[in-house]
Design a protein around this nucleic acid. Structure first.
Lengths: 156, 156
DNA sequence: TATTGTTATACTCTATAACTATA
DNA sequence: TATAGTTATAGAGTATAACAATA
């Protein structure tokens, strides 16, 4: 018998809703994020802010438009996270000398400390989430998700 | 060489961010949802509203608290969707005669028509998303996601 | 003209706190 | 006391429209 979400709420007729993969992807996503949000509260950052911080740390002077391309989100959306991170002292923005339209982003000491702590939490959460799977299954899940992602339709 | 998101933005040093599965799950989730939102605009419903409608259709007289349990979201959150669906004529709520605290939910003709159309869109989108995978891979992805979901930590 | 950043505004999904009514 | 529903409010993440500055 295949695994099914039916077991969780036997009183409901799911009528095939649990055959929609997106439902489970969404639920897992929400559970992961809300747990992470609570754990990051101490550091005054949100999950998305950490992701931005991660790339700024690894790419000093990166532009907002590069982040927009990577995350597949719009520039004003990126800007919002950058503004929050700047206000909280995790990031600084210096106008580029080469192209005065663009402003490079740099992480601060505070930001770097926050990132280090956040990374630990993220790795622990993720290992936790995947613990019901064997190592082979984890690798396969990872491979399949990436494969789907790589040919996923862009927003535009 | 393993599949990697690095290929999409070669100019960025991802510094292991793409080894975080949650990042890809989140991106896929958002891409799926935003496409679906646009397609459902005509019918004046959102993805989550359709999911609610789906279960109300299959379980006439269902209570809000049952939906809360299934979706793992709080009662006030369910209520919000129910209110929207009621205002737009997709749903009606009748107080139960057995337990006057509870109100059973029933789908309307409009709601049923919307659900039928929405289901088509959802199945098409999903087939599209999974098309890069072979049938075996799709089945395996489904199995792994459900397995993760079933042992995923609850919110509480 | 095209790109980068910005501001203003709005929508979707979710939560918590506090309330009413009923069991 | 516990459960069902409700109201009010807020926060995270996202978008579009419109603009200024620069290339």
């Amino acid at each position: 018998m295949p695994l099914s979400r039916q077991a969780v709420t036997p009183e409901l007729d799911l009528d095939g809703l649990d055959r929609v993969l997106g439902i489970h992807v969404g639920t897992i996503n929400t559970l992961l994020l809300s747990r992470l949000e609570r754990q990051l509260e101490t550091f005054k950052v949100t999950p998305k802010q950490v992701a931005i911080l991660w790339l700024v740390n690894a790419n000093p002077g990166v532009k907002q438009s590069d982040l927009s391309r990577f995350f597949k989100i719009e520039r004003p959306t990126v800007h919002q996270f950058v503004r929050q991170l700047t206000m909280n002292g995790h990031l600084v923005s210096e106008p580029s000398k080469l192209d005065r339209r663009a402003g490079g982003l740099w992480i601060t000491e505070t930001g770097a400390a926050t990132l280090t702590a956040a990374r630990e939490i993220i790795f622990t959460d993720e290992a936790d989430l995947l613990s019901p799977l064997t190592a082979d299954e984890q690798a396969e899940l990872y491979r399949l998700i990436i494969k789907v992602y790589l040919s996923a339709p862009s927003r535009t």
